[in-house]
């Protein structure tokens, strides 16, 4: 019979376990393969630059003020997009999730429009909000609206009816119901929706920046491409991936304590 692996805490006098060793081996193999490919020149030499060139570019990137200015621009645009798009989605999600009738009327539109490529709306966003940061924020807001709204609507429907009846028995107003009952009860789906929404808003903003912008990390990526500065482009992509994963992990931690308590039954 198959047995389930048990995850145990690190013992005193830590020694790497098999999983860590396999991970280290995979990373080492990829790096060695990359370096061999770079030295051999089998691929176009500049497309696969040697690791030391990427490391130098990474250090240079992290030490440049220009990078932080562009990072700030992208983060600011993403944050505004998340607040605007996520805020609207929260409202729509609560309304649709709170009414079975309205949910059945309008949720299919969200469900089917959600998985469409949002970047194609960029020409419209430029017309509406100009070529500056406004159109990037709008792209991010549009991108994150759908996953957040659907997640909130699903979370709203999963609230135990007894909590809603308790709120009603206290004659709570709509605003009190939202802040004291709905939002605390669906904290996990809301945070998960925003986690998903953050990633999608970031993609929307960065892609819009690659298309038409003079600031932001997306602009830097496309600038490096136009200069054919491959080490700098790799360094930038590594930083963007690391940042998005860090932000994702950070938002995930918001739901973690409750999950652990739930799992301790």
């Amino acid at each position: 019979m198959a047995t389930t692996g048990v995850v145990t805490g690190a013992a005193p006098g830590w020694r790497p376990d098999a999983v860590t060793l396999v991970r280290a081996a995979i990373i080492a193999a990829v790096l060695i393969l990359w370096q061999l490919l770079a030295i051999s020149g089998l691929l176009y030499q500049d497309v696969v630059p040697p690791l030391q060139a990427i490391a130098v570019a990474l250090i240079r990137l992290l030490g440049s003020g220009d990078f932080y200015a562009n990072l700030w621009a992208s983060l600011y645009e993403t944050a505004v997009a998340l607040v605007v798009g996520g805020g609207a989605a929260l409202f729509v999600g609560i309304v649709l999730g709170g009414s079975r009738f309205l949910g059945r009327a309008f949720e299919p539109y969200l469900y089917y429009l959600g998985p469409t490529p949002k970047i194609i709306f960029f020409p419209i966003m430029i017309m509406w909000f100009g070529v500056g940061p406004g159109s990037k924020m709008a792209m991010g807001a549009l991108s994150c609206f759908f996953p957040v709204a659907l997640s909130v609507a699903v979370g709203m429907r999963a609230i135990p009816p007894i909590l809603i009846r308790v709120g009603q028995s206290f004659r709570a107003s709509q605003a009190q119901m939202v802040t004291k009952v709905y939002l605390p009860a669906m904290r996990e789906p809301v945070v998960n929706g925003f986690r998903l929404g953050f990633g999608i808003a970031l993609i929307g903003v960065l892609l819009a920046e690659t298309k038409l912008s003079n600031q932001g990390l997306g602009f830097l990526v496309i600038q490096n491409y136009q200069r054919f500065d491959m080490p700098a482009m790799y360094a930038l992509i590594i930083v963007i991936f690391a940042l998005s994963m860090l932000a994702n992990a950070g938002i995930s931690r918001l739901t973690a304590p409750r999950s652990r308590r739930g799992g301790a039954h």
Binding site: Y44, D46, V47, G199, L202, I203, L206, L207, T210, G218, V221, I222, N224, Y225, F228, M230, M233, Y234, I237, I240, F241, S244, M245
Partner: peptide
Amino acid sequence: APIVLVYPLFLV
């Protein structure tokens, strides 16, 4: 991860 952002790499 924002995978689509590596498209300039594939352009090269």
